[in-house]
Write a protein that binds this DNA or RNA. Structure first.
Lengths: 128, 128
DNA sequence: GGTTGACCTTCCAGTGACTGGAGGCCCTAT
DNA sequence: ATAGGGCCTCCAGTCACTGGAAGGTCAACC
């Protein structure tokens, strides 16, 4: 399979796939013309990567997950731990965004939003 | 004021303050020795920046907000609009993270997390 | 056989918002 | 005079791509 086809099937841009090869996440064969020749296994790895990235795993976490994916004798506990650590990160991020949202929402509510210059949003940002 | 003092008071690293000068968000004076000499106004702008960044505004949004802050005849509606657009972005981000969290949480729940290799997390990531 | 035009290749540079480090000047205290 | 800390600039690196230039390859059509 050429990169275009694998890009369509995996739902990842060709650029991204080349990048993943660069950083050693996949290692497709090469044809005589120098074109990458992707196997079904390569495609599966790319789908895996696309989904893991979509869940917010970092590239390094993906590398770990792929290694576990390849290791047929891994313990599911190892995978679960990685996933749980990531879940904690997501929760932290959500909490952070909620706090931001609350503060910003308060400022917005306090602002008349009319033609006058007086603005609690700007004064709220200015003072410590 | 030297950069160290302003860094302490604004709660921003000196590196970040230099960076903000580089990209034109502040323009402190210079002393004879070449050291930056920050005024109270510079400090206030840095505090403003720190808080706006803390609320997740991008640098370009901060630039806009600072311009409105400087413009004593701005309409509060202009500020409110910028803030509301940002609030929408925050909400979108929260929704995205919640969706990730839900999917990941389901996968984690389905995983026994023991010594056996079978793992619904990995299989969930592998299939489209 | 020539010519499109789509597809593939590599390499370099840019994104956002910093952060780290090297190498060197300046200031104060001992 | 020397030790230290603070300040300066400039360059490179981060993360995960993304865009673009310059050029090779392939299949189809005339």
């Amino acid at each position: 399979m050429n990169i275009g086809q694998v890009s369509d099937r995996a739902g990842l841009p060709a650029k991204t796939i080349r990048y993943y090869e660069d950083i050693g996440l996949i290692a497709p064969e090469r044809g005589d013309n120098g074109y990458r020749d992707f196997s079904d296994t390569d495609l599966h790895r790319l789908v895996f990567l696309g989904r893991a990235r979509g869940l917010g795993f970092t590239i390094e976490e993906c590398r770990t997950l792929l290694a576990l994916y390849d290791d047929k004798s891994r313990a599911s506990a190892d995978v679960k731990r990685v996933a749980q650590e990531h879940l904690v990160q997501i929760d932290a991020k959500i909490d952070e965004l909620k706090a931001m949202r609350a503060t910003l929402s308060d400022l917005i509510t306090a602002c008349a939003g009319d033609h006058r210059p007086n603005c609690p949003i700007l004064s709220g940002l200015a003072k410590a």
